[in-house]
Design a protein around this nucleic acid. Sequence first.
DNA 1: CTACACCATCGTATATCGACGATGAACGGA
DNA 2: TCCGTTCATCGTCGATATACGATGGTGTAG
Lengths: 111, 111
Amino acid sequence: MTDSTTICCPPAADAVTVPDDEGEANEALARLAKAIAHPARVAIVRILIRRRGCICGEIVEELPLAQSTVSQHLKLMKSAGLIRGEVDGPRVCYCVEPGAIALLKALISDL
Amino acid sequence: MTDSTTICCPPAADAVTVPDDEGEANEALARLAKAIAHPARVAIVRILIRRRGCICGEIVEELPLAQSTVSQHLKLMKSAGLIRGEVDGPRVCYCVEPGAIALLKALISDL
DNA sequence: CTACACCATCGTATATCGACGATGAACGGA
DNA sequence: TCCGTTCATCGTCGATATACGATGGTGTAG
């Protein structure tokens, strides 16, 4: 079974909890905005959303960047809580964290 | 006439044009996201939205930052096209660029 | 067990950010 | 005209971002 779509990728986004405190909301928005504040990272997020299933090596193939550079971008977004990565044998399965995307959308639209 | 609300601050956001090309959309989203990828800048944007009128020295008073630091953040957001600044005598009137906010919201919600 | 594929990490170099104090430029009021 | 207010810019410093090649670690296949 090498079908990556069965490994990770949570079901869907449930309720989003926007922070009450404005300072916390500012920090959360700044953190998530920074996570996509680069064209390559926006492209990665789009890829992860488009293919519901997760990937990693395929991302490298779709972008004009070195493998180490893509890995760095993934690490940055993972530490920001925007994406998730799970090991599937020799490969790693990345996917968007649904709650984080929903929170980002809520924080932006509440502006 | 020192009423700053009469100086700048455009009427409202009209139609938003999201770029067709995905690469351009990625760059636009990354540029706008970077403009708010800092808690202080999110706070500034909120201030500019809350008071419909524009400000500048008042921003410095509301934030725990030096005047030069606030000026740098304003410059960064202005060069990103997120805000606008018009001279009103000795003071400068800042306000949000409605189209840019609308574009940001559209790009995020289209994710 | 060996070899390969996949990905993370390290090390490096350059550029930008983020903060501050100090200085400069523009304008209005006395 | 001279002064005070307001804001931008300069110079500096440490921290972070961005990119790459090289290396290492882990798991699968043969």
